[in-house]
């Protein structure tokens, strides 16, 4: 039954021409927050399948449950009900060591609130996940500088988060998410605090990662440029999937609306 849902919805194009492979799949995902006797249903049953190498944009009004959804599929939080499969492995079955490995090597996170470590420089923030992954310090430093160069922060490598602007911090967060060449990149509004040009640069980086390295990118955004380059769009409303559509279909719709 769950398999069916997954295949029905997995309509994204396959860039490599290989058989499609589902990399993230959720089954009946629900999350309820309990705060001082007040229950908030952040997710009310989400079933979705995301293909490997896909670039999918997630949209929805504020408070609709996007970040909550990201935490679930990124193995950062446990769902109240339902399951998350990452490459067909049930996350709930993993041991603590395996979970750490998964978070460290396979999934890159860009948090909405960056979550940089305050006492580390930009470079250290980027190299810390590498250190956890067992990369030697020299190599880590070299690679860290490369990635910082990629996001345009090469000459700010020794700055601490509080010494940087919001946009710069966001770019450090992006650099950190790329540290261990993840297979899946979860981006929670990665361009929210960036100006048009830097935002475009980041989008270009994401697109390049997606096309050249086949990284699966799941991106919460309100940015229209993102909609133009993604494979699929997904709308979340009130903790449920409102709609999933291919980009082409959406463009036709938009065009028709514009035409009216």
């Amino acid at each position: 039954m769950a398999e069916n849902i997954a295949t029905e919805q997995g309509q994204g194009p396959d860039k490599n021409g290989d058989e499609k492979r589902i990399i993230i799949r959720t089954v009946g995902l629900k999350k309820t927050y309990m705060m001082k006797d007040v229950l908030t249903q952040a997710l009310r049953g989400v079933d979705v399948a995301i293909d490997q190498g896909e670039f999918i944009s997630v949209m929805g009004p504020s408070g609709s449950g996007k970040s909550t959804f990201f935490n679930m599929i990124g193995a950062l939080d446990s769902p109240t009900v339902g399951r998350v499969f990452i490459d067909e492995v049930d996350v709930a079955q993993l041991t603590a060591e395996e979970l750490a490995y998964l978070r460290c090597h396979k999934i890159g996170y860009i948090f909405q609130s960056y979550n940089l470590i305050k006492y580390m420089t930009a470079l250290e923030n980027v190299t810390t996940p590498m250190a956890f992954g067992g990369v030697l310090p020299d190599e880590a430093r070299e690679r860290g500088m490369e990635i910082l160069d990629l996001v345009g922060l090469k000459d700010r490598w020794h700055h601490r988060p509080i010494e940087m602007s919001g946009g710069q911090q966001q770019r450090v967060a992006i650099a950190r998410s790329l540290a261990n060449n993840p297979s899946v990149l979860l981006c929670d509004e990665p361009t929210a605090n960036l100006d048009v040009n830097t935002g475009q640069e980041i989008i270009d980086i994401l697109v390049r990662l997606n096309t050249e390295k086949g990284v699966t990118i799941i991106c919460a955004t309100h940015d229209h440029r993102m909609m133009n380059i993604c494979d699929r769009l997904m709308w979340i409303r009130d903790g449920q999937i409102d709609r999933i559509a291919n980009r082409e279909d959406v463009h036709i719709e938009l065009a028709s609306i514009d035409g009216e």
């Binding site: 990399i23 395996e98 750490a100 490995y101 998964l102 396979k106 250190a131 956890f132 297979s183």
Partner: peptide, 10 residues
């Protein structure tokens, strides 16, 4: 695509 191993110690 995602083979899961044990995380090494720092």
């Amino acid at each position: 695509v995602i083979n899961i191993d044990n995380q090494p110690w720092l």
